[in-house]
Design a binder for these strands. Sequence first.
DNA 1: TTATTTCTGGACTGTCAAGTCCATTATCGG
DNA 2: CCGATAATGGACTTGACAGTCCAGAAATAA
Lengths: 206, 206
Amino acid sequence: MSPRDTETTLTARGIAMRARIVDVAAGLIYSSGVEATSLDDVMAASHTSKSQLYHYFTNKDDLVRSVISLQAQRTFDVHNDHLAAVVTMADLHLWRDAILTMYSGAGGSGGCPLGSLANEISGQSETARVQIVAGFEAWQSQIVRAMRALQANGTLDPTIDASELAAAVLVALQGGLLMSKTTKSVKPLELAFEMAIAHIGRYALT
Amino acid sequence: MSPRDTETTLTARGIAMRARIVDVAAGLIYSSGVEATSLDDVMAASHTSKSQLYHYFTNKDDLVRSVISLQAQRTFDVHNDHLAAVVTMADLHLWRDAILTMYSGAGGSGGCPLGSLANEISGQSETARVQIVAGFEAWQSQIVRAMRALQANGTLDPTIDASELAAAVLVALQGGLLMSKTTKSVKPLELAFEMAIAHIGRYALT
DNA sequence: TTATTTCTGGACTGTCAAGTCCATTATCGG
DNA sequence: CCGATAATGGACTTGACAGTCCAGAAATAA
């Protein structure tokens, strides 16, 4: 899948080096954006040379693609830890609390890694856009699974569209994360969760 | 307020020229972002020369500040047309329909001009961030006014915090606009409105 | 050991972008 | 009409950045 595959074979050391570069690049891009992050920045922060970057990646776009994959995976993992075992409405609040703590603890939210990328390059690169949409869909499918679980055990109205409900929840979170990043306050994200969970609660069976 | 003020005085022609440059720059930045829009791009699209840009603006940041002001004002005006005279819940649906039509008509949403700017530069320039936050607050105050109107005429529970409710609505819209831009579909924005209005509806008095 | 391949260092190139400078043309006030 | 000032054209400088190239170090397999 990756352009690298046809070039060389990576050793264990190479795999680790590559992962470190992607990790560092993801951090820089998260805080400064794709355009504002130069390869020189990545080199300096990861203590690597230009040859290394072009040994592991065909160009900057390739590196960015890897960063998107990493952020999508990380996002998936974080939410999966809390959404996978949802059986009651209270579990949704636990999920909310965990995410809220995570973002407030990190000294003011820096926004959603995936959302930031979406905003910046979904209009520039179609392949990147598709890749990010896939990340969102994976995330959304986790929420769908949680909704279906609630429907299955009689907590939630089984006639409503779990997919649309999940999409709305994701929309709320994205808005909350963007506004929290902008206002440097966790409040918007809190309001987003409250609204999203209340939205789900509208279809709760007593 | 603007850095230009201390330099020269603008004639009517100069004011028009300056406005045209800001307008063109706003369009380019809206579709490509701040970093990806060069002054050469602005020159080409507005048929101006470099001297003109530096005659009307001290530097690129100054131009960007003007673009932010313009977009904040435009956003304010668009929503004001529909929110200023809200007296019933049905008026909120008219507002939703108008905005939805506006974004779907433009061949796939390009996102919120203010939200896109917020995402890209709120982490880079503190002054820009503050300026954008002010734009959001003005927008939010329109929603607050609409909520207060509904509370005043007995449509909405007067004990709830109109400010928090408005903030949640704004969060939903931002999320919807971002997701619509990313997925190239109006659906997320529709879901955002539906959720936001339902959220308001929870506090409606029968 | 030795041949082969991966991995790394860093100098170098070409391009593009921001910002400067100066000359020239339009416009305005008196 | 005529100085002063605003408005414009465009060449030029400087720096940053993506991408190239080649030489050498390290590891791997036989």
